[in-house]
């Protein structure tokens, strides 16, 4: 069980860092609310609720991107990642810890974004809430790995959206489908499938991203 203790310690470290420094979370919260306000003015007056549902997903994905770009910033500064890689723990634990911490951040964002969306645009169904939870898991799994890749490059913040958006398309399809379809079960199942497949792939391949 040391593996899960490592994961928990790493995730706790990230949460504590955020609680003390408050670098990322307030920025993400402000961003998601600002985006929703911008979307109100971007939509034509008679666009209706369906179009707004799609924009909710855009806001969530872009806000997640904002957070993911900073995900490995604490490790990058002062070379903490090298220390973590050298530590006698399974390297996939580093990814899992980071993904869990990011999942908590996205949960906080969603807890603000969904009520804000309900106030500004349209009521939020339970299917949407379930879709957001499942999509958040997928975003964390894939996003933290891609962010680690981007952190190794010279153009960090620039390259991450390019890597992330094509992989986020299935999540947007699943999420929007769960929000507006008559049969949301299929879309929720699809989101679950995405999470399972990509979480497994990221878990197995993270080691190669951080080691030489």
């Amino acid at each position: 069980m040391t593996y899960f203790a490592d994961v928990a310690a790493l995730a706790r470290k990230d949460l504590r860092l955020e609680l003390r420094a408050r670098d990322t979370l307030p920025a993400m919260l402000l961003f998601v609310v600002s985006t929703l306000v911008v979307f109100h003015f971007a939509l034509p007056a008679d666009a209706g609720e369906l179009a707004a549902q799609g924009l909710l997903w855009l806001a969530l994905v872009f806000t997640a991107l904002l957070g993911l770009a900073r995900a490995w910033a604490p490790e990058r500064e002062s070379g903490a990642l090298d220390g973590l890689v050298l530590a006698p723990c399974d390297r996939s634990a580093i990814w899992l810890g980071k993904a869990l911490a990011t999942f908590v951040f996205l949960g906080v964002i969603s807890a603000v974004a969904l009520p804000a969306f309900a106030v500004f645009f349209a009521p939020v169904s339970w299917e949407t809430v379930a879709g957001v939870a499942l999509a958040n898991a997928g975003i964390c799994a894939v996003g933290t790995l891609l962010a680690a890749m981007a952190a190794a490059s010279r153009t960090r913040e620039l390259v991450l959206p390019l890597l992330f958006l094509p992989l986020a398309i299935p999540l947007v399809v699943g999420g929007v489908g769960a929000s507006i379809s008559d049969d949301p079960g299929r879309f929720l199942a699809f989101l679950g499938l995405y999470d399972g497949v990509f979480a497994l792939l990221c878990w197995a391949s993270f080691e190669y991203v951080v080691s030489e």
Binding site: L167, P170, V173, G174, G177, F198, L201
Partner: peptide, 18 residues
């Protein structure tokens, strides 16, 4: 190679609703 089937499934799902 993992994205190919997942995306294909997503696009198939999307065309009915979206």
């Amino acid at each position: 190679v993992v994205l190919v089937p997942v995306s294909f499934l997503a696009i198939r799902l999307a065309e009915n609703v979206i």
